[in-house]
């Protein structure tokens, strides 16, 4: 019997290790270990074996059974791995073939710029408010301390709809509107379209975009103005950006200033972009004129504030190195796809 067992064992080993697919291996399992399998048969026959041989043969049979089981498992694994490997090989593709793209569009560079600026000021607690584009002269001029015959109100600069309504020439109109109906503390920004009579060329357009900022609280001074706008310039143009404040004049702020930033092209050394000055004019700003506060019903002895306004079109042009304003309004998709 021992010889037979050995024979079965050798036969099994041979057949299993030669098997190259799962189905054959399953059949071999049945052949040797199944209910009527050869090893199972032999185990059944053990009961007829003499008592002294029984332990030895029993152990042998169990060992063989275990060996075959192990071998089967091992071979199955091998065969599976091989099959997987073959399958993977079959599935090989040329990964350098271009992908199938999902169509995705883009925001207009002007609005992308606006959103970025809004985000920076929002982080400093400025809320976004909007105002009408067709505006009362009262808000566009009167309440901003721009008197009736000031040159800024000339028909040659402003598009008029009626005697009292005009296309706003500045987002500053929102200042007056907001202050008239809200009590301090006020921290707002207001981006939007503005209109001035200008023929279209590389740097001018009868419609362009501005963003206005206004803060009115107790104890606001020019130091706050400087810090806020300097922080903005660094956030928007890069941490290395330097700023300087120059005295200037606006009807609705006093003291007034213009903020320059170090040239983004040469870093301040002087180049063609900054006309060799090292500085580029960025925005106008100043402390809200007490007359403006009073006209809006805010006590200028109690509250102070600052306001600023900047051209978004120019900011976007600088940001993306765009050299012609017309591109913004032509909307050639080859242009729009770049952003």
């Amino acid at each position: 019997m021992r010889d037979i067992i050995e024979k079965i064992k050798n036969m099994a080993k041979k057949e299993i290790s030669e098997a190259s697919n799962i189905k054959v291996l399953e059949e071999l399992r049945v052949k040797y270990l199944g209910k009527k399998g050869e090893i199972t048969q032999k185990l059944k026959e053990l009961s007829a074996v003499s008592a002294e041989l029984k332990p030895m043969l029993g152990k042998l049979l169990n060992d063989v059974k275990r060996d075959i089981e192990e071998l089967l498992t091992f071979q199955m694994e091998t065969v599976r791995n091989l099959a997987l490997k073959e399958e993977l090989e079959r599935e090989r593709i040329d990964v350098t073939i271009p992908g199938k793209r999902c169509m995705i569009g883009a925001r207009h560079p002007l609005n992308a710029t606006t959103n970025e600026i809004v985000r920076i000021f929002s982080s400093m607690g400025f809320s976004v408010v909007a105002g009408p584009e067709i505006e009362w002269e009262k808000y566009n001029f009167d309440m901003l301390n721009i008197p009736k015959n000031h040159p800024a109100r000339d028909e040659s600069d402003t598009f008029f709809i009626s005697d009292e309504l005009a296309l706003r020439t500045q987002t500053s109109s929102v200042q007056a509107r907001y202050m008239e109906t809200h009590k301090p503390p006020i921290r707002i920004i207001s981006p939007g379209r503005v209109y001035r009579i200008d023929e279209i060329d590389a740097t001018h357009s009868p419609m362009f975009h501005q963003i206005e900022g206004l803060i009115v609280e107790r104890g606001i001074n020019m130091g706050h103005l400087k810090h806020t706008l300097d922080a903005f310039a660094r956030a928007f143009y890069g941490e290395d950006t330097k700023t300087r404040f120059r005295p200037h004049h606006f009807q609705f702020t006093e003291p007034s200033a213009e903020m320059d930033m170090s040239c983004f092209n040469c870093g301040g050394a002087g180049c063609r972009v900054c006309k060799n000055e090292g500085w580029i004019e960025l925005l106008g700003c100043g402390m809200v004129h007490p007359k403006v506060l009073e006209m809006c019903g805010i006590d200028s002895n109690e509250y102070t504030g600052f306001a600023f306004g900047m051209g978004l079109d120019r900011a976007a042009m600088q940001k993306f190195a765009i050299n012609n304003l017309k591109l913004f309004f032509e909307n050639d998709v080859r242009f729009l796809k770049q952003f």
């Binding site: 982080s123 806020t228 005295p247 007034s256």
Partner: peptide, 28 residues
């Protein structure tokens, strides 16, 4: 007075005015 302040500031130097962060305020 605001006009006087500008006169003083421009000779004192706008850039000599110390920069101060905004006081805390409400969220936007």
């Amino acid at each position: 007075v605001a006009d006087l302040a500008e006169e003083v500031a421009r000779l004192f130097g706008y850039n000599n005015i110390p920069s101060v962060p905004l006081p805390g305020g409400d969220i936007a």
